[in-house]
C-alpha cells in the first residue's frame, strides 16, 4: 500500500492512499447544498439561531419564515444555502442518539448510491440520518449495534471489500 503525500501530484493537498479517491483525513468546509447536522448553541433574539456544525465556523438559521421554535441544545438537520452561511429546509431531530465520526469517513458510511447506509439500517433495524460534516443521528432500533458497525467502518475505511466484511461480521447474528 502506498501513501500519497501533499504535493506528490497536481492538486493533491491532503493525505491519500493509493487507489482510494477520498482523502484520509480532512477538515470539513461547508459547501452549498450539503446536508449537515448541527447543534444549536445560541440564539440572536428574533433574528437567527447559531448552529455548531463542527466545522471551523458556525452556521445560522434565520428565524424569519421558520415555522417552529427551536431551543439551545437541539440537533437540527438542514441544507447549506448558496451563500454558505445559513441553513435552509431545517428539520428538528427528536428522540435519537447523536454520534460523531471524522468527516472524511462519511463517504464510506453512506457508500455508493447509499448502499452501505441501507445495510447498516437493515442490520441494526434502525433509522439513520448522516450529515456531510460527520454527525450521524440514529433514530430508533438497536443503537449500540449501529454504533458498532459505524465504528468498524471508520476503522477499516481505507481497506477494500468493506461491505463483505460487514456482512460477514454482523450479518449472521440477526
Amino acid at each position: 500500500m502506498r501513501v500519497i503525500l501533499p504535493g506528490d501530484m497536481e492538486n493533491i493537498y491532503n493525505l491519500h492512499l493509493e487507489g482510494i479517491d477520498a482523502a484520509i483525513e480532512t477538515v470539513y468546509i461547508p459547501k452549498p447544498r450539503d446536508v449537515v447536522i448541527g447543534k444549536i448553541i445560541a440564539e440572536k433574539k428574533n433574528v437567527a439561531y447559531i448552529v455548531d456544525i463542527s466545522s471551523f465556523y458556525a452556521m445560522s438559521i434565520m428565524i424569519r419564515g421558520l415555522e417552529m421554535r427551536l431551543n439551545i441544545g437541539d440537533y437540527v438537520m438542514g441544507v447549506v444555502s448558496q451563500t454558505g452561511e445559513t441553513l435552509e429546509n431545517v428539520r428538528l431531530l427528536r428522540n435519537g442518539v447523536i454520534y460523531r465520526v471524522p468527516e472524511s469517513k462519511v463517504g464510506r458510511i453512506v457508500g455508493s448510491k447509499g448502499e452501505m447506509l441501507k445495510l447498516i439500517e437493515k442490520l441494526s433495524n434502525s433509522k439513520l440520518e448522516v450529515g456531510r460534516n460527520g454527525i450521524i443521528w440514529i433514530g430508533r432500533g438497536d443503537f449500540s449495534r449501529a454504533i458498532d458497525i459505524i465504528n468498524t467502518i471508520v476503522k477499516r475505511a481505507h481497506i477494500r471489500g468493506l461491505t463483505d466484511y460487514i456482512m460477514k461480521n454482523f450479518g449472521d447474528a440477526k
Binding site: M1, R2, V3, L5, L15, L17, I24, S54, Y99, R100, V101, P102, N151, V154, K155, R156, H158, I159
Partner: peptide, 20 residues
C-alpha cells in the same frame, strides 16, 4: 511517507474514533 504507511498499514486503533 514511512511514518504514515506504518500508521495506516494495519487496522486503525480506537484512537481514530474521536469526539465520542
Amino acid at each position: 511517507r514511512d511514518a504514515f504507511t506504518r500508521r495506516y498499514s494495519k487496522e486503525l486503533s480506537n484512537d481514530l474514533v474521536r469526539h465520542i
